[in-house]
Design a protein around this nucleic acid. Structure first.
Lengths: 102, 102
DNA sequence: TCCATAAATCTAAATATCTCGATATTGAAC
DNA sequence: GTTCAATATCGAGATATTTAGATTTATGGA
């Protein structure tokens, strides 16, 4: 749990928004045919919603992944991103421990 | 509770360290004579511990104050900074609400 | 194999943050 | 009022982040 890297990843309103969107798969278009079982979302869908360039979103998702907030799963040409709930909770616990008085 | 500003203020290891130091007044030299009743810490003490310039620390404390993490109280020539526990808890609650699934 | 599509990486310009030294402000003491 | 000490603010150079377009890589299909 690298708090430094995680806070840095959160220090951007669109990256935080993406994490919120990913709470609910229905914030995005339906899964591509043959991928209905995956809860992840492909980069193109995120890009469309965030209205930023493909390279920027790819970069953002890389930062969120390195911070441990999302898990990337490649299926064919697509990379599906989904939240890493466990790591998100671990981050919150770490920040709480660091910020709160004993 | 401006999460944006707060995360930005936390996005620096030394500012986070200062918030930790401020948990315990005994991390700093004893209060100046006549100020024993104040739990706050003056800028010079923080500067000495952080080993950064006076202007940098003054700037940092301003950011932490604007973010709501500390309260500044001026007494004579000194500004005493102390943690704002209530706001810190409010920030943690806000981040938890934003990050955690419903 | 060759082409099309999705995503990642590279490059670079614009902007923001960090950090300092210098200067200004504030308040105390003489 | 003058001077001194503590803090705040200003200005600037160094560094980091943001973001896009161009290129590259990976994969699937004709």
């Amino acid at each position: 749990m690298d708090v430094e890297k995680s806070i840095s990843a959160l220090n951007n309103p669109i990256r935080r928004r993406i994490l919120e969107w990913l709470k609910d798969r229905s914030n995005f278009p339906p899964a591509l045919p043959g991928h209905e079982d995956l809860e992840g979302v492909c980069v193109a869908y995120i890009q469309e919603k965030a209205k930023l360039s493909q390279s920027t979103i790819s970069n953002y998702m890389g930062l969120l992944k390195q911070a441990g907030f999302v898990i990337a799963e490649r299926h064919g040409q697509w990379t599906f991103y989904r939240r890493d709930e466990e790591n998100i909770q671990a981050f919150l616990a770490a920040v709480r421990d660091e910020l709160l008085k004993p």
